[in-house]
Amino acid sequence: MPEILSLNNVTFSYTPEIQNSRNAVENVSFAVDEGEWIAIVGHNGSGKSTIAKLMNGLLFPQQGDVRILREPLNEENLWESRSLMGMVFQNPDNQFVGATVQDDVAFALENNGIPFEEMVKRVHAALEQVKMSQFLDHEPHHLSGGQKQRVAIAGALALKPKLLILDEATSMLDPQGRAEVLQTVQTLRTETGLTVLSITHDLEEAMLADRVLFMNDGKKFAEGTPAEIFALGDKLVEFGLDLPFALKLSKLLQKEGVPLMGQHMTEEELVNDLWTSNFNK
């Protein structure tokens, strides 16, 4: 699959003038291929959000480069590159500008000089994709958190991005809102093959990704499938994260002396193992 974005040996410090100051991002490399869902996980301050800002040119690295469609990102191609990336941020209330849902989704299109007919078409299509069509004329601030984030996703989709970046987009939502947004992203991926990069410390969200990048103190500590990353077990806890629920419970059960064949990532696997190891005899 063609590469959409890559970071190549990127190092960034917020205070480069101070000698020996800590780098927010240090020698990080990774690539995102078309159609993938990549999750970047890590503790607060591990460099996740700095990476997001480097990807869309809000910050430029002191070393290494960021490539969009294999072209190094620079001042000249900045705006064009940004139009390829739709971003959804943490706080749903900080990203609304329109008085109604459809105005809000149209905002970026208007800014980009999209003709009216085309704009209406795209707004309707984008809201259809996130299942918010029936809210066209609603005021955004009357929506629930999950609905607001779905509108924000529609706003990003209307620009037909190559890559959708979710920067902790579910961390302020209630459990239902979080489930709604993740469901929306999953549906989008099956229906349109959209490429997604989500920055999160919710491991259940990371489990949905194809590949996980595990950041610690500005460095890439590990990269792999969710199963490979969660197999790191206590390292996750040591670096400020947690274990997925089923894995944590597997460990506790083994500590209590319950026979199990292994440690499990999903509840289903754990229930099955409990059944075959203990009841089905």
């Binding site: 890590g42 503790h43 607060n44 943490q90 902790e168 961390s171 302020m172 410390h201 491991l203 806890v237 400020g240 994260l241 947690d242």
Partner: peptide
């Protein structure tokens, strides 16, 4: 704990 990583939350 909104917005904190799992360790911070705990």
């Amino acid at each position: 704990t909104a917005g904190l990583d799992p360790r911070g939350q705990k």
